[in-house]
Design a protein around this nucleic acid. Sequence first.
DNA 1: GGTGACAGAGGGTCTAGACCACCCCTAGAG
DNA 2: CTCTAGGGGTGGTCTAGACCCTCTGTCACC
Lengths: 238, 238
Amino acid sequence: MDEVAATPRSLKHVAVREYVRSLVEGADAGSPAPSERELVQRFGVARMTVRQAMDALVSEGLLERMPGRGTFVARPRRRVGRLTSFTEDMERRGMLAESQTLLARREQAGPGVAKALGITPGDAVIHWKRMRYADNAPMCIEDAYLNEVLLPGFLQAAMPTSLFDALAARGLRPTWAEDAITSDKANAEEANLLQVQPGTSVLVVARRALAGEKPVEVSRSVYRADRFTLWVQLGEES
Amino acid sequence: MDEVAATPRSLKHVAVREYVRSLVEGADAGSPAPSERELVQRFGVARMTVRQAMDALVSEGLLERMPGRGTFVARPRRRVGRLTSFTEDMERRGMLAESQTLLARREQAGPGVAKALGITPGDAVIHWKRMRYADNAPMCIEDAYLNEVLLPGFLQAAMPTSLFDALAARGLRPTWAEDAITSDKANAEEANLLQVQPGTSVLVVARRALAGEKPVEVSRSVYRADRFTLWVQLGEES
DNA sequence: GGTGACAGAGGGTCTAGACCACCCCTAGAG
DNA sequence: CTCTAGGGGTGGTCTAGACCCTCTGTCACC
């Protein structure tokens, strides 16, 4: 019945799950999925097996069960706190992100940076300071420290526009970030770089980014508050 | 006749699940949970039933299965973008939250508030403006608009310290919030209330909070940046 | 002392039924 | 015409087994 001979494992509940997923993908929210007993017929499996398949899709948030009525495509779940790079963030705002490197060199980690990166003070870090532009106007000063051990030869390679892309290419795209957000006045240097008056209010985001369990980046970004509003979505379940 | 007298709900898989949860709660990560067959013995149920119970805890992220070895308490999963109230937030920081109402009255919604609350301009809203203190010092000015339709008699009741508690009592605890975070300078009134110099940098959080699908609250909170840093955790799980 | 086979225990998959509660629609009663 | 009682379909719960693969510790053998 199934031409799947090359797969060492042909798990029935996986087959059912993926079949239903393919049906459901792209369907409007609220449209019905096949009933469990119908899938039992179609695949010739036990109902418990079908339920195992459907359970997976339900707990994935793709389907929604309604006792007595059926199983339906769930309303797409709202995404909580998506982690995005500056480039992606600007794209989402319909702006073109560009960068200019102000400083890029190997340094020894100070105590604060070392602690945040989970390394020993004095260990090598990459210090990368950039101006970030959106639609050709200054948006942000980003001062980042990267764990040198995880990124051999990083400074030799051509500096990419997107740090996240460069990390992703090494399998180190951050999957987790802790941001501390505060507000401050631009000092003389920041004001000059951001092309605002000294003393202007700026938004400061201190980030610690991890790829899996490994801290990769710690940074301090100073945003022009007149051009940038940080959007955050919060929820209360997994 | 269908009145099931003494058994409101005695679901076996729930019994097993809660039994295991109680065992596991407070246990160190990595410590073993009872084996499935042991639970089958203890509760005298089928193994599928035990698996249903364990599946729930696994997909909840509480347990972790390791084929051939057993089921173990999982490392607590990092929480992404938890939605908390001011009171809870201050508690987490080890500070005592207090409030002082500056204004509490019924108003007609303006266009911006109406749009955010999903109602018609001119509809009744509750306008509640409060000073928020942490450890007896000013922390924040919170200016909130609530959907009056959802909260009948809200102004008549004694104003609680925690808005979230009051909403929770009506089954309207926000489950979702969209925050727009920016930075500004305190104007004369804000500076006076927050007891800072006019022109000081403040952190401004504009929030739209929903309970399920219903927008309940829209607010603008002005925080003293010298006392308050906003913490946000971001992830990228699907 | 090292080592490999083996048994026991653990989770993973799957069956072929059963009965329940619930929802909705419809046909018959009024 | 309205209202209500069924009936059929749905998911929810549960059983009592079966066989599979993987892991780990033990114990006899070298």
